[in-house]
């Protein structure tokens, strides 16, 4: 009994470490991509000879945020999800949300404390967009890496019952 308890607690501790590492991986990738993607988007618009649309700031922000959502937040979340899913097989539904939260909170702290980004409604929207992207990416990454195992699990009982019938 004692051994079981200690095993489960060490597993939980291990899971927490993996969750933290997954969050850190997602955060690192988000920071790295965020340093390149927004400028790249602007550069791309100028290369396409339509850089002037930046003047129409509301629509430009929508286009820019969509681009960042797809390339930065989804990707950051996906990578953290792959790591988390690879190292933790159990409780994927519950655990994959946490790296996304770590990633989002870390990035929020970075932009507000270090980059001195003003705390406005814009930041709240940014937070919501990032949390959504990271969460979706994290779940997709976590389930992608375990897809084979999960698929096998669902197939096994049927195969077994067929075998017993034979």
């Amino acid at each position: 009994m004692k051994t079981e308890l200690s095993e489960s607690s060490s597993l939980k501790r291990g899971n927490l470490v993996h969750i933290a590492i997954a969050g850190a991986i997602g955060f690192g990738i988000t920071v790295l991509l965020f340093a390149m993607v927004p400028d790249g988007f602007m550069q791309l618009l100028f290369n396409l000879n339509m850089g002037g649309i930046i003047f129409f700031i509301d629509l430009y922000q929508v286009a820019r945020n969509l681009f960042i959502f797809g390339l930065v937040y989804l990707t950051g979340g996906f990578c953290s999800g792959i790591y988390a899913g690879y190292n933790m097989y159990s409780n994927l539904k519950k655990t994959l949300f946490i790296p996304a939260v770590i990633n989002t909170v870390g990035f929020l702290l970075l932009v507000t404390l270090i980059d001195n980004y003003p705390v406005t409604m814009g930041l709240v929207y940014l937070l919501l967009i990032q949390l959504t992207g990271n969460t979706i990416g994290s779940y997709l990454g976590g389930y992608a890496i375990n897809w084979g195992e999960l698929h096998k699990e669902t197939e096994t009982p049927e195969k077994l019952s067929l075998k017993t019938r034979k």
């Binding site: 339509m50 629509l59 430009y60 286009a63 820019r64 969509l66 681009f67 797809g70």
Partner: peptide
Amino acid sequence: SFGTAYYT
């Protein structure tokens, strides 16, 4: 994103 940019 590019659709929105192109529409603008």
